[in-house]
């Protein structure tokens, strides 16, 4: 870990002007700083900012402060009642200890778990642009099958963000100049392309202050995470689903996927294909065909393609049963 300057932000307005890397839970940043994968010159400790509340918004949704811990968010009665998919996703992630420390804003900004990104001696375009990709042709069991590039095949490791993507969450930020903006989560992340080191649309010094959820979506909420051990492991495939039935047919299906891409994956053509359909396996297969039409395995992770199909079908079957 390189030496760094350390300062505490006293209020939101000054935080961005302190010209440093924000640290809150620190569970991912310090992990990477110890390996010198991350080497910030300055840390701005934002843990004392008043961003720990969860408040109701005028349009019937919730505004979640950026510093709300994953544990507190998962346990919040409103989240459990109205946004069950989010509570489930949070509880499927990490461990009790990590959820107590990790924050809402920080979770969105987690870096990939790619082993080549984590090993400074290996090529990685994300860590060191232009150095190459160790995972392509290497051990890529956990890597992406959708939206990859020849520069990077990493996945985004968050469970929380997958559920938020299904829920049309909006990220609220404050820029260095004090102006604020709201970014739909669907526009927040970037695919790796030629610049995998740029993972989202945040500007230098722009601080996530909250995540806003629209008013609750009716329907069955599911979060299914598939992994190699029963707990405390990252997703190989995960599916967040909110499915509403009407008259025995699918009226609305909000579907987002983890473990498949550089960002929480959502494909509205998949959802449209399901609307008005009966909950039959053949229809679920058609949705999976659309989802996975462009999927490309890298060898070790080829199994993710059938796994995603099977998991999606099972989730849809479960969310539509008895309707």
């Amino acid at each position: 870990m390189r030496p760094f300057d350390y300062a505490r932000a006293g209020n939101v307005a000054e935080a961005g002007q302190m010209a440093g890397r924000f640290i809150a839970g620190g569970t991912n940043l310090l992990d990477l700083m110890k390996l010198e994968v991350e080497t910030p010159d300055k840390l701005v400790d934002i843990t004392r900012l008043p961003l720990r509340g969860i408040e109701e918004t005028d349009d019937g949704g919730l505004r979640i402060g950026a510093l709300v811990s994953n544990a507190d968010l998962a346990a919040d009665p409103r989240i459990r009642r109205d946004y069950e998919v989010l509570s489930r996703a949070l509880l499927a992630g990490a461990s009790g200890q990590l959820r107590n420390k990790a924050t809402t804003g920080g979770n969105l900004l987690q870096r990939t778990r790619c082993s080549y990104f984590y090993e400074p001696s290996q090529p990685c375009n994300k860590r060191e642009p232009g150095s190459g990709c160790g995972a392509i042709g290497g051990f890529n069991r956990i890597h992406a099958v959708l939206g990859t590039s020849d520069k990077c095949i990493a996945t985004h490791p968050s469970d929380m963000a997958v559920a938020m993507r299904a829920l049309d969450a909006v990220v609220e930020t404050q820029k260095v100049d004090g102006s604020t903006r709201a970014i739909a989560l669907g526009e927040f992340y970037r695919l790796p392309g030629d610049t995998p080191e740029i993972e989202n649309v945040l500007e230098q010094g722009e601080l996530i202050t909250a995540v806003r959820l629209p008013k609750p979506f009716a329907g069955q909420h599911r979060y299914r995470k598939v992994r190699d051990r029963a707990s405390y492991a990252f997703a190989l495939v995960s599916v967040a689903a909110v499915v509403r039935m009407d008259g025995g047919k699918i009226a609305e299906a909000r579907l987002a996927f983890g473990g498949l891409a550089h960002m929480p994956w959502r494909d509205e053509t998949v959802e449209k294909a399901l609307i008005g359909q009966e909950p039959a396996m053949a229809n679920f297969d058609k949705a999976a065909d659309i989802l996975l039409a462009e999927a490309k395995g890298q060898g070790e992770n080829d199994f993710k393609i059938p796994l995603a199909r099977r998991t999606l079908k099972a989730v849809l079957a479960d969310a539509t049963k008895g309707a």
Binding site: S115, F139, D228, R229, A233
Partner: peptide, 12 residues
């Protein structure tokens, strides 16, 4: 490649 306890999976 998997030289830590996050990626070398021992039972939990």
């Amino acid at each position: 490649v998997n030289h830590d306890l996050a990626e070398y999976h021992v039972p939990v």
